[in-house]
């Protein structure tokens, strides 16, 4: 089936759609160097293609296109309640990219967007400007890789590097860059920063194989994590989302044991643990996209608009993973 798909579907980023106003932006030119064989199509506004109603997210994932645009509004958002703020009172996130090159079965983006195409906002300098305005009022904790995976696309856009240069100039800014990639090598030459946290989502291999399509295996993520730690970066591990699959205890216990056999637990900055949770409206759309997903068909309970495992199951999973993690890392460093 995979071979059939390969011959039927155009390769990823076979087409690059570019907003007329973004055509001459230096980042556009830089990005296009990586797609010399792509069809270039000029568009007026990225929403003309990204926000159409009659799209098929699942099929688009088999041949995603790239959209280069200018971000004109909502340059920064307040952090969502479902996301851990790690004790920071001024928690924000920003989207310099929308969508991701990976294809996780449980990804909330398939409920959030109508398109699987990847949007890159090339005017990152305007987002920097907006952050600087806010920094004049108060310090900021900013997540830059929520609705995407910036490090996975670093070789093309280099935004991780640009954010690092920006963070270096602003000590009252703390940035979290979250990733599932094994691409630390793309930024390994950069001197580690006190106010930047590299956060890796870590999952057991059976979950990676079955539910985190196109993402690197655990071993490869850990090589990247080890590289970052050795270099002196603050590294956060995210055992999140925990999935209630068959033999989850065995899989997560083994993953934690293996993780701390590969990386020095005392060097880890902190750890976050959370079960799968998603807005009920997104879940509805996600189920529609992946009608045959056992993972998404689970009879989740909904409270305050958020669907997740029932309280008992949530507690059980969190407690187990917390205890196993606490065998290696001091409890103050674990956020649940």
């Amino acid at each position: 089936m995979k071979n059939l798909d390969k011959s039927l579907y155009s390769p990823s980023f076979s087409h690059v759609y570019i907003e007329k106003q973004a055509m001459n932006h230096p980042n556009t030119k830089k990005i296009l160097n990586h797609f010399s064989n792509a069809q270039i199509i000029e568009i007026n506004h990225y929403k003309d293609i990204f926000s159409r109603s009659h799209q098929h997210y699942g099929l688009q994932k088999k041949s995603p296109k790239l959209i280069l645009a200018l971000k004109k509004d909502h340059l920064i958002y307040k952090g969502a309640e479902v996301c851990e703020d790690f004790g920071h009172p001024y928690f924000y996130y920003t989207s310099t990219m929308m969508n991701c090159i990976y294809d996780c079965e449980y990804c909330y983006l398939q409920g959030m967007y109508t398109s699987a195409n990847v949007v890159v906002f090339v005017n990152i300098e305007e987002i920097f400007g907006e952050v600087e305005k806010l920094l004049k009022k108060h310090p900021i904790y900013l997540c830059i890789s929520y609705d995407t995976d910036i490090l996975a696309f670093e070789n093309v856009i280099g935004y991780g590097r640009e954010w690092m240069a920006f963070a270096q100039k602003h000590q009252n800014l703390t940035i979290e860059l979250r990733t599932k990639s094994a691409n630390f090598k793309a930024i390994q030459d950069i001197e580690p920063l006190e106010n930047m946290i590299l956060a890796w989502t870590v999952s057991p291999d059976p979950i990676i194989k079955k539910y985190e399509n196109k993402t690197p295996f655990l071993k490869d993520r850990l090589i990247s994590i080890k590289g970052a730690l050795d270099r002196g970066w603050k590294v956060r591990l995210c055992f999140d989302p925990l999935l209630s699959i068959e033999e989850w205890q065995k899989h997560y216990k083994e993953m934690i044991k293996y993780t701390f056999s590969q990386v020095a637990a005392e060097k880890i900055y902190d750890i976050s643990i959370g079960v799968f949770r998603v807005s009920k409206d997104y879940l509805k759309r996600m189920r529609k996209q992946r009608g045959e997903s056992l993972l998404l068909s689970y009879p989740f309970e909904t409270q305050n608009g958020i669907s997740s495992y029932d309280v008992q199951q949530t507690q059980k999973m969190i407690n187990h993973v917390y205890q196993w993690t606490a065998n290696y890392v001091s409890k103050e460093k674990i956020y649940i």
């Binding site: 155009s10 069809q39 000029e42 007026n44 099929l59 088999k62």
Partner: peptide, 27 residues
């Protein structure tokens, strides 16, 4: 065709080109 422009309204439409094909592309 990967882009369709309506001359009178100046609206543009984009059929999804998900499949490999033997043709050239144009608007």
């Amino acid at each position: 065709c990967n882009k369709i422009i309506d001359h009178e309204t100046q609206r543009a439409f984009y059929p999804d080109i998900l499949f490999t094909h033997p043709f050239k592309e144009a608007s």
